[in-house]
Design a protein around this nucleic acid. Structure first.
Lengths: 108, 108
DNA sequence: TTACATTTGCTAAAAATAAGTCAAGTTGGC
DNA sequence: GCCAACTTGACTTATTTTTAGCAAATGTAA
């Protein structure tokens, strides 16, 4: 399951941790953990590294799950149309390519 | 061009407005407009409706451009992998479907 | 050079995020 | 029934990020 909260819950349960075990390790109380697992609160971006250390899961994987979830929620909340993610993908390509050609000397 | 700043600039120029003309209409000064057009500042979400009225462009279109841009920038900034948007798309589907089945009476 | 347009450095103000508190529930064993 | 684990509501507070105005700098065209 790629939903971030479900992912967290699954990983926590794999390790047989209660929410308060997990909360202690990551620095949150049980209300927060519960809300995060149930997707009514977001996990904090600044704790992603700590999470990847704690779970021993590659940070890129964690980050991708986190942002895919964030974007999905936002797109849903604001009723974006279905094309939005392919447009976003194009935009990333554009930005990357722009970044690359930047810094090159421009001749007029 | 689907990049939001470029889109704004193009629409403004179509109408032969200076940044300060546009700024006056939408409630921002030229600094803000400049930064928004150059993508070093984001257009404010709360002004999207006003923008759609001003440009006479369907709000859905404006919103989609806005969020596609936002997501792309964020994905780029945090170096998300390329798969992220298809995962996000799946997640939206999941959320929608979950929302639908919610509220239905559950029999055990 | 003058005038208008645009960009940028600095910064206060505003907004978004993050997370705690505390109380009042549920849920699922045993 | 009891207990521990979990959920949820209704806040409040703290922190971080972002916005956008001002003024100064730069660009640009006549």
């Amino acid at each position: 399951m790629t939903i971030f909260g479900k992912f967290l819950r699954a990983e926590r349960e794999k390790r047989n941790w209660t929410q308060s075990d997990f909360g202690e390790k990551i620095g949150l109380n049980t209300s927060a953990i519960s809300r995060i697992e149930n997707e009514s609160q977001r996990f904090s971006k600044s704790k992603l590294k700590a999470l990847s250390d704690l779970f021993q899961i590659d940070e890129q994987v964690i980050k991708d799950l986190y942002f895919a979830d964030k974007f999905a929620r936002e797109a849903f909340q604001y009723n974006c149309s279905e094309t939005i993610f392919s447009v976003a993908e194009q935009n990333v390509k554009y930005i990357k390519q722009k970044k690359e050609t930047q810094g090159q000397i421009e001749f007029k």
